[in-house]
């Protein structure tokens, strides 16, 4: 009785917040409603007895993915007037796509055949010899579906490497960088050195400035001095 009531409360909030994700005027509010939707989905998992899935949903989606999503959306500079432009023009095509997806779902559900023991499995999703559903999921995931599991992991790895490759830029040759291991390993914390101009302290591992390419060197120095100011 209480479980059924809780189900309807969470399901209603889930659907309402899903609607708000699409209709909210402010994109940050949309993301926050999305997070609320995730939460209610997690609560529905809990009611279904899938506590591991519920917690993973909160940790992965709410705790990590949505944080980064919110992070990006907050930094976007969105013009609401411009965003609403063309709403009327694109409404029919949007409605057609949405309607077709809805019809497909209806067909799939209409042609759904329930296996004979499906109802029984739904009541007791865990195998009889397993105590918690964490163990049950682990047992299936790492035996029957190990190939799919590893393959999806590899796909994520490729996506990650792709993102890094796209954003990684080679640092200019004369950029400063710090070798923290060398700095920490230094025997004397304080030393005095007569440092040649623009050469840096490579042997101390401090802030190293690599020598500039030979051809550019005089020009770059003159340029720096003009703008750096205060030397002459």
């Amino acid at each position: 009785m209480i479980a059924a009531l809780a189900f309807y409360v969470f399901a209603a909030i889930l659907i309402a917040s899903a609607v708000m994700v699409v209709t909210a005027r402010n994109p940050v509010h949309s993301v926050l409603y999305l997070i609320l939707a995730f939460f209610n989905a997690a609560a529905l998992f809990l009611i279904a007895g899938a506590e591991f899935l519920a917690m993973i949903l909160v940790i992965v989606y709410v705790g990590a993915v949505a944080v980064l999503f919110l992070f990006v959306v907050m930094m976007l500079d969105i013009d609401f007037v411009q965003m609403k432009e063309g709403f009327q023009r694109y409404l029919p095509i949007g409605a057609i796509v949405g309607g077709m997806l809805f019809l497909e779902l209806l067909f799939v559900y209409g042609a759904w055949q329930f296996a004979d023991d499906a109802q029984g499995l739904r009541m007791h999703p865990n195998p009889a010899d397993v105590a918690t559903n964490t163990q049950a999921i682990g047992r299936i995931l790492y035996t029957d579906y190990i190939f799919l599991f590893q393959a999806s992991g590899l796909i994520l790895l490729v996506a990650m490497i792709g993102a890094i490759v796209l954003t990684l830029r080679e640092k200019p040759a004369n950029s400063r960088r710090q070798n923290i291991a060398v700095q920490v390993a230094r025997a004397h914390a304080v030393t005095m050195k007569d440092v040649p101009k623009r050469a840096g302290l490579a042997e101390l591992g401090g802030i190293i400035r690599r020598p500039l390419p030979a051809a550019k060197k005089p020009k770059a120095v003159a340029h720096d001095d003009q703008h750096g100011g205060g030397h002459h």
Partner: peptide, 18 residues
């Protein structure tokens, strides 16, 4: 005293950023 207690703790602590 739930089965996934440590996951619950981790989930709640990861929400603190919000």
């Amino acid at each position: 005293d739930i089965n996934v207690g440590i996951l619950y703790l981790f989930a709640i602590s990861s929400l603190g950023v919000y």
